[in-house]
Computed example of a mutant assay.
Amino acid sequence: MEADGLVPQLQVWLNRHEAGVTVVNGGVSGDTTAGGAARIDWSLSPDIGAVMIALGGNDMLRGLAPSEAKSNLTKIVAAVQGAGLPVLLIGMQAPGNYGAEYKAEFEGLYAELAEDYGTLYEPQFLGALGQVPAEALVWMQSDGVHPNEEGVLRIVEALGPRVLELAEMAASKE
Rank of each mutant, 00 (worst) to 15 (best):
E2M: 10
Q11Y: 03
Q11K: 08
L14Y: 07
N15K: 12
R16G: 14
E18L: 08
V21S: 09
T22E: 13
T22Q: 13
T22Y: 01
V24K: 12
N25L: 09
G26P: 05
V28E: 14
V28I: 15
V28P: 00
G30K: 10
A38E: 13
R39V: 09
L44H: 09
S45H: 11
D47K: 13
D47N: 14
A54P: 00
G56T: 07
G56R: 09
G57L: 05
L61V: 07
L64G: 01
A65C: 05
S67T: 14
A69S: 15
A69V: 02
K70I: 03
K70G: 12
S71L: 10
A78F: 00
V80K: 02
A83G: 01
L89E: 06
G91M: 04
G91Q: 07
E101D: 15
E101K: 12
K103V: 04
A104V: 10
E105H: 03
E107V: 09
L113Q: 08
D116L: 07
G118H: 08
G118Q: 07
Y121K: 05
Y121T: 03
P123C: 05
P123E: 09
L129S: 08
G130Q: 07
Q131T: 14
E135D: 15
V138G: 14
G144R: 12
V145G: 03
V145N: 06
E150H: 11
G151S: 05
V152A: 02
E157L: 12
A158R: 12
V163M: 11
L164V: 08
A167N: 11
E168A: 15
S172N: 12
K173E: 13
K173Q: 15
E174W: 13
E174K: 14
